[in-house]
Write a protein that binds this DNA or RNA. Structure first.
Lengths: 189, 189
DNA sequence: GTCTATAGCGGGATAGAC
DNA sequence: GTCTATCCCGCTATAGAC
C-alpha cells in the first residue's frame, strides 16, 4: 500500500532525474502523480523539502545498488570495479543523482547534502577497495587509492555529460570501458 | 570598441557559465550588461538566439585554447595531453561549455549544436593524437584511440561534476592527475 | 487529508513612442 | 537603436472550506 507521501516522493525522484531540480515544478509533480495541491503542501512544506526527501531516498537506493554489485561479483578488485562500471545506464537521461549537481539552486547546502553523502559513500568504498588491493600486492604501488576512486566516479559522471552533449548513448560505456583497460594495466599477480 | 550586440553576447556567455541556460533570464542579462529591453530584442529575436550566439563564441574560444596548449607544449603525446588536463579550471563553477548540457531545454537541437561541435572537435583532435602516437609505436597497441579520447574528455567533465557535488575544488585536478598516471603506463619507448 | 480559490512574483516577449 | 509600458503565463506557495 502506497501512501500519498510515498507517491509524491517517488514522482519527485523520477522528475528530478528527467528534468533536474530547478526545472521541476510542484505542478509537474501534481500532474504526474494525480495528487492535489492541498495534499502536496499538507505532506511537505515546500518543493525543496520534497526534493530533499526524494534525493535522500535516491542516495540510499544507489548506495545499496553499488554495495550489491561489489558484494555479488566474484573475482579480484578489477572484476568488482569493472562490474560497477558496466552496470546498465540510461546514457542520455544522465546519472539518477549526479544529474542535478549543476542546477543553480543546488548550491544550497541542504539540497547538496544528499549528493555529498552519496558521492562520499562511494568514494570511501572505492578508496578502501583500491587500498586493500594495493596492500595485498594486487594493485601497482604507484597508484594512489583516493585519486583512483575520484577518477572512477568521475569517468562515469563525465561519460554521461559527454554522451548527452553529443547525443551518443554508447559514450558512457566507451568511457568506462576505456578506463577499465587502463586500470587493467595496474593489476599485479 | 564594443558594440551593444557584443556586450550582450559576452554577458550571456558569463551567465550561461554561472547559471546555465534555463536559469538565466533576459532580465539577468539586462541587469548585468546595463542594456535595455528594447535593445535586447532589437539585436536578438529571443533568449534562445542570444544563447546560441554565446555558445558558438564560447566553443570557438575553447577550441582555440585547446589547439594552443597542444601546439605550444613540447614533448610527446603524453606531455601534450597532460598539459591539457592540467590547464587551470574553475572547479566549482564547472566547464564553461559542458556545464549546461543537463539543462532540460538543451535537448533542443539548435541549442545542442554548439556543444556537439565543441566536443566533436576535441574528440577528433585527441583521437588523431592518440592514433599517431600508436602508429609511431609510442602508445601501447592495446589502446583504442577513440575510446581513450572519449575517456579523456569524460574525466574532465566528470571531475567537474564530482567536485561540485562534494564542494571540493581540487577534485577535477585529482581526477585528471590520476588519469595522467594511468595514461603514463601506456607510454612506450 | 484533500479540495478550490487566490495571491504575488518573475519569465519571455511585444508595441509603439522617441 | 533604445526606451517604457503592457501582456500573458507559470511558478511557489497560502487560505479556508469540506
Amino acid at each position: 500500500m502506497t501512501t500519498t507521501r510515498d507517491l509524491l516522493v517517488d514522482t519527485m525522484k523520477q522528475l528530478l532525474w528527467e528534468r533536474g531540480y530547478d526545472a521541476t515544478s510542484p505542478n509537474h509533480v501534481l500532474e504526474r502523480s494525480g495528487v492535489g495541491k492541498g495534499s502536496f503542501y499538507h505532506h511537505f512544506k515546500s518543493k525543496k523539502s520534497l526534493a530533499i526527501a526524494a534525493m535522500e531516498a535516491r542516495a540510499d537506493e544507489l548506495i545499496t545498488e553499488f554495495d550489491t554489485v561489489i558484494a555479488t561479483t566474484q573475482g579480484d578488485w578489477l572484476d568488482k570495479v569493472s562490474a560497477y562500471l558496466r552496470m546498465p545506464r540510461h546514457a542520455l537521461t544522465g546519472c539518477r543523482i549526479g544529474r542535478i549537481v549543476q542546477d543553480p539552486s543546488v548550491i544550497d547546502s541542504e539540497l547538496q547534502a544528499p549528493l555529498q553523502r552519496y558521492f562520499g559513500a562511494l568514494q570511501q568504498r572505492l578508496s578502501a577497495l583500491y587500498t586493500d588491493a594495493r596492500n595485498e600486492g594486487k594493485l601497482s604501488a604507484g597508484c594512489q587509492p583516493e585519486g583512483l576512486a575520484t577518477a572512477t566516479l568521475s569517468i562515469v559522471q563525465g561519460g554521461f555529460v559527454y554522451g548527452r552533449a553529443v547525443s551518443q548513448d554508447q559514450a558512457v560505456n566507451d568511457a568506462c570501458e576505456s578506463f577499465i583497460g587502463l586500470l587493467a594495466s595496474q593489476r599485479l599477480n
